[in-house]
């Protein structure tokens, strides 16, 4: 009579997770027939896997936080403007490939799909730090000074919405002035952030130049899709 083979736990986990080749699977399947203990070990591993799936089949709805932000954002944003080069690089990559498609050139798939067009800039603000608000407005003004026919939008969500709220913005006049000088400048507020604030009893009144998008992420995604250059402050 054959002695039961001693399969390691790592190997049995790999079997349960469908990570083994056909031959290794066959070996284990053949061994189960003569080894009840092996069958039980596998059953326990599979049960543990199913329990994990079950536990997160329905997760609680997202609860947006008003009072705290990820420390990473505070730290990362201290470096003034984070130039979101994704689409811009995609555009530059696109330009490069138009002139010379060198073999092995590292032009990304996304870079080819999303070819940003110059003159349409989306600036994303999600911080209420005055330096970040300043940076967003500075950037818009600087770009318009060089290209007055450009289309610029500032999208604000999370704490960044404070830029566009009447009761919190220190820049109401600056926003009004920018809009008066440049008709193609837009200020967009995240509807989800507004709803969240209203949900906890905050009365949200926006500066008159503002429009509202359903969510900031969707607005960013749509603008990227339309070929806008996306800059995160």
């Amino acid at each position: 009579m054959n002695q039961p083979r001693d399969f390691s736990d790592e190997r049995l986990n790999a079997f349960v997770d469908n990570q083994l080749g056909v031959q290794e699977c066959d070996e284990i399947l053949a061994a189960i027939a003569n080894d009840a203990d092996l069958g039980q070990r596998l059953c326990a591993l599979r049960s543990a896997k199913e329990l994990v799936r079950h536990a997160y089949g329905n997760v609680p709805p997202a609860r947006h936080r008003l009072d705290r932000r990820l420390p990473v954002w505070c730290g990362a944003l201290a470096a003034s403007i984070t130039l979101i080069v994704g689409v811009l690089a995609g555009w530059l990559g696109h330009q490069a490939t138009a002139t010379a498609e060198a073999p092995g050139a590292a032009t990304s798939w996304a870079g080819r799909v999303f070819a940003a067009e110059p003159g349409r800039i989306l600036i994303h603000l999600d911080s209420s730090q005055s330096e970040q608000m300043d940076a967003a407005l500075d950037l818009a003004e600087a770009y318009l000074a060089k290209a007055s026919d450009a289309r610029i939008e500032i999208i604000a969500n999370h704490r960044g919405l404070e830029l566009l709220r009447v009761d919190t913005t220190p820049y109401a006049e600056r926003i009004a002035g920018l809009k008066a000088q440049h008709a193609r400048v837009g200020f967009v507020a995240c509807g989800q952030t507004i709803a969240r604030l209203q949900g906890v009893g905050v009365d949200v009144e926006l500066v008159p130049e503002t429009t509202v998008a359903r969510t900031a992420i969707e607005h960013v995604a749509e603008r990227v899709q339309q070929g806008w250059t996306y800059l995160k402050i």
Binding site: V59, P60, P61, A62, R63, H64, R65, R68, R69, L70, V72, W73, T82, I84, V85, G86, V87, A89, G90, G93, S108, W109, A110, G111, F114, H124, D126, H158, I217, V220, A221, V224, Y230, K232
Partner: peptide
Amino acid sequence: AGLADDLAQETLTRGLSRLDQL
């Protein structure tokens, strides 16, 4: 739930910003 939503949001923001790396 709040932190998870922040993490998901930040992931999407970073992802959109780095599409050239995909």
